[in-house]
């Protein structure tokens, strides 16, 4: 076995070992080397593969199954109903409302998060040599390492119409106070604000990593060529950041389309009423959760999940098509 394992590290000691005992080749029948390596490889990933299969892919595939069945968690039998669940879904106004809310949420959060992260990354890069640069980086990233539920509860206080920080800020700016989470107009934007605050640090770090891969000399050459400011950014820096930008946009899109925890905590929490007021914050994933675990309509919730899956897939493919045209890979 040690012989096998040694093949996994670059320096292989196999050849001398084999040549040391050339006798009885027929007694030691072995699988061809590539087969053995393949079996060892699969053997090594098997434990985690099982965990993934049972707790991750299993439920995911099961979801596709029950989306087409009339399925009850308490009943032993289920009945194939074809697209019936989808038909019910499409006749539910709240489903369409949730799709609209999700779109509204994604369309605002994705560009705002991406652009803010990009701006922060550029600022942090400029301040890299300055005193306190490291601390600033840490502070920008810090919100992302806090638990969503815990910080959401803090933000419930910030958004409190009577004594929250948000309205205090508006008063300082001589703007009218808002009802924030209690307002049908402002509840979803409040969630957006929280989400941007919580996630922008991660994408800033990703952008910083992307910026670091751009050769310094190319930027200096642009300086020597007389480019600076907006021109240097638009013609040199931005095109070279295409791949990382594309990656960040995809990641933000997928994450925002699946937003759940902060909506649940900010708008109702365990006491019920999440998604309110008046369904103003009921997005896809919240509706899926409520349909499945509040009303126990698992088939319906599964059908919704299938729709959401399709939407995310479609969006990613569209983004990929756009990226293939406009993103330059070195």
């Amino acid at each position: 076995m040690s012989n096998r394992l040694s093949r996994l590290v670059p320096a292989t000691a196999e050849t001398p070992v084999r040549s040391a005992k050339p006798s009885h080749p027929e007694k030691h029948w072995r699988l061809p080397t590539d087969w053995r390596e393949m079996l060892i490889g699969y053997g090594l990933i098997l434990p985690s593969f099982w965990v993934f299969l049972v707790f991750y892919y299993g439920p995911a595939f099961f979801l596709f199954y029950i989306a087409f069945f009339h399925w009850n968690i308490f009943a032993s039998q289920s009945q194939f109903v074809g697209l019936h669940n989808f038909a019910i879904l499409f006749h539910q106004p709240v489903f369409w409302l949730s799709l609209f809310n999700t779109a509204y949420y994604v369309v605002l959060v994705v560009p705002v998060t991406t652009l803010l992260a990009l701006a922060l990354a550029l600022l942090l890069r400029e301040s890299a040599g300055l005193r306190g640069g490291g601390v600033t980086r840490a502070l920008v990233f810090l919100p992302h390492v806090t638990p969503v539920v815990a910080t959401s509860i803090i933000w419930v206080w910030i958004f409190n119409p009577n004594f929250g920080l948000a309205n205090a800020l508006l008063r300082v700016l001589h703007l009218p106070a808002l009802n924030w989470l209690a307002s049908t107009h402002w509840a979803l934007p409040s969630v957006m604000i929280y989400t941007v605050w919580h996630s922008v640090g991660l994408y800033t770090v990703l952008f910083l990593a992307g910026l670091a891969t751009i050769p310094r000399h190319v930027l200096e050459a642009a300086q020597m060529d007389g480019a600076r400011g907006w021109l240097a950014f638009r013609r040199i820096l931005w095109p070279l950041m295409g791949p990382i930008t594309f990656f960040v946009v995809i990641l933000v899109s997928i994450n925002t389309m699946q937003t759940f925890s902060q909506i649940y905590t900010l708008t109702g929490g365990p006491h019920g009423g999440a998604g309110g007021p008046a369904f103003a914050t009921t997005t896809d994933s919240l509706l899926i959760y409520q349909t499945a675990f509040l009303y126990l309509h698992f088939s319906l919730a599964s059908a919704m999940s299938v729709v959401l899956f399709g939407l995310i897939l479609a969006l990613t493919l569209v983004q990929k098509l756009i990226a293939d045209r406009f993103v330059f890979y070195r």
Partner: peptide, 29 residues
């Protein structure tokens, strides 16, 4: 600043703009 000096520089690793054609590399400045 360098962009006002009008000095041409050739870098060791050339530092060409990888996303531009040769024509655009020449035209950019």
């Amino acid at each position: 600043p360098p962009y006002h000096r009008n000095i041409g520089m050739v870098f060791q690793n050339y530092a060409l703009y990888p996303h531009m054609t040769v024509y655009d590399n020449l035209a950019f400045g």
